[in-house]
Design a protein around this nucleic acid. Structure first.
Lengths: 122, 122
DNA sequence: CCCATAATGATAACAAGATCTCATTAATGA
DNA sequence: TCATTAATGAGATCTTGTTATCATTATGGG
């Protein structure tokens, strides 16, 4: 059976506290404020089981390692801050993307990334 | 000085023939139809000098290696085919992305990726 | 046509991110 | 409380993409 360890509690806590897509390194750094000696392998193991269990989802980002965010949210997109490198969630959707799709192509999905400065880095 | 070799001619030719963002592997495969014994290192060297010379640009894609496309085009976005894995260019822009940006954030740039099926893979 | 040297091809070396190994620790059912 | 065994931490290992090495080839100015 799955055991409830201090490490996994700390990792789950980081996700609900931050509520944005996190890299494994960010998860580690956040969780180490509770369990200072935590190792990166523990983070990867937890991310794997959280992903398989449907608690978190993978977010693929252009030119960066994968991030992970809490699953079950409404459709949304992401904002990447060029100051601190953090990624944030943005509610909503531009809609009307069908106009971009050339004749003969079929759209199944889309992603939007906005780059700029977060409030802390302006 | 820079020499004009059969390999570099073939690589430049692949870009104008395909007119879409290519991975180094795709560039190699395309160029090998002209210069069959071409090596991957030659492709990377050519991509580096073409990028530095402003002829091609890097395209960062979510969850994939970098691609390269001809520079100097109008603002556009990309379509990724789930059938063949090729990436295509789409003219235009959804506009009105400012509405997505939460208060306090400053937008500097954006990227849109559409996923689906290309005409060949429908 | 020559020759200096830029470019090439094959492969080794690197880099970064992710996974595996294994001895040790600790959560949980009995 | 105890014993089983899942989970952990540290670091080795693997993977994928990219760059470096080096002997050989071949471009292009003189």
């Amino acid at each position: 059976m799955q055991r409830d360890t201090a490490q996994r509690r700390a990792i789950r806590r980081v996700f609900s506290r931050e509520n944005r897509p996190l890299t494994p390194q960010e998860v580690l750094a956040g969780a180490q404020s509770t369990v200072p000696q935590m190792g990166l392998a523990t983070v990867y193991r937890a991310l794997k089981s959280l992903t398989e269990g449907g608690t978190v989802m993978v977010v693929d980002v252009p030119g960066e390692p994968q991030r992970y965010e809490l699953a079950g949210k409404d459709h949304h997109h992401h904002f990447s801050c060029r100051g601190c490198g953090r990624m944030f969630e943005m509610d909503g959707c531009p809609g009307d993307l069908e106009q971009l799709v050339p004749t003969g192509f079929v759209m199944e999905d889309h992603e939007v990334f906005i780059y700029g400065r977060c409030p802390d880095c302006r």
